[in-house]
């Protein structure tokens, strides 16, 4: 039991929530995450236009993600990512690219919502408020039946709150790119 929990919470609260906070490296660095980090998919640049380009920053650590996105007839026909960052931000970008490439924009937006829900403390069943959710997202919404597949490997990131922004950086940048594509 991490001692910070003993210092902050009552024994009753610990009995209810305590085990949810116990986390080891293996919760964070799942093998599939390390694989995407070492062998990133869809790395590179696309010609702008026809593609659009969005850049996302994490001011805390200086990480930077570039998302190139080409949409045709409501379908994401091509997507690639660039930038630099830690294993979590880079693998999340790689996994995001494989998850949304070839999907319709509508499906991609649903996936973004489901992923960000999973990345909120509420969505992962740890309790507290889901303050990383979109404003228009009902707090008690589930993943709405969206299958996250390999992305489930990133669920453990929630146990390391300072790393959540690493995992969501590429997804927020994707949202910016989608908005540009429809400007």
């Amino acid at each position: 039991m991490p001692s910070v929990l003993r210092a902050i919470f009552s024994p009753h609260e610990l009995a209810v929530y305590g085990s949810k906070f116990v986390a080891g490296l293996e919760d964070l660095y799942r093998e599939i995450i390390l694989d995407h980090y070492r062998n990133p998919r869809n790395r590179g640049e696309l010609e702008v236009p026809p593609a659009v380009q969005a850049v996302g920053f994490n001011p805390l650590c200086g990480d930077e993600i570039v998302v190139y996105l080409e949409v045709r007839d409501g379908v994401i026909v091509d997507l690639s990512t660039g930038g630099q960052g830690c294993s979590i931000s880079q693998s999340s970008a790689s996994m995001m690219s494989t998850a949304v490439k070839g999907r319709t924009v509508l499906e991609a937006r649903r996936l973004v919502r489901a992923f960000k829900h999973m990345m909120s403390i509420h969505g992962s069943g740890i309790g507290g408020s889901g303050d990383d959710l979109d404003e228009d997202e009902p707090a008690d919404d589930s993943q709405n039946g969206v299958k996250l597949g390999d992305l489930e490997a990133l669920r453990g990131v929630v146990k390391f709150p300072v790393r959540i922004k690493c995992a969501t950086l590429s997804w927020n940048t994707l949202v910016d790119a989608l908005e540009q594509a429809f400007d």
Partner: peptide, 21 residues
Amino acid sequence: IHPHDLSQVLDDRGVCVRAGH
């Protein structure tokens, strides 16, 4: 190895360092 990743593994072994700017 990104400083975030390095400090995460260090933390797992009880080693407290700062990662960032």
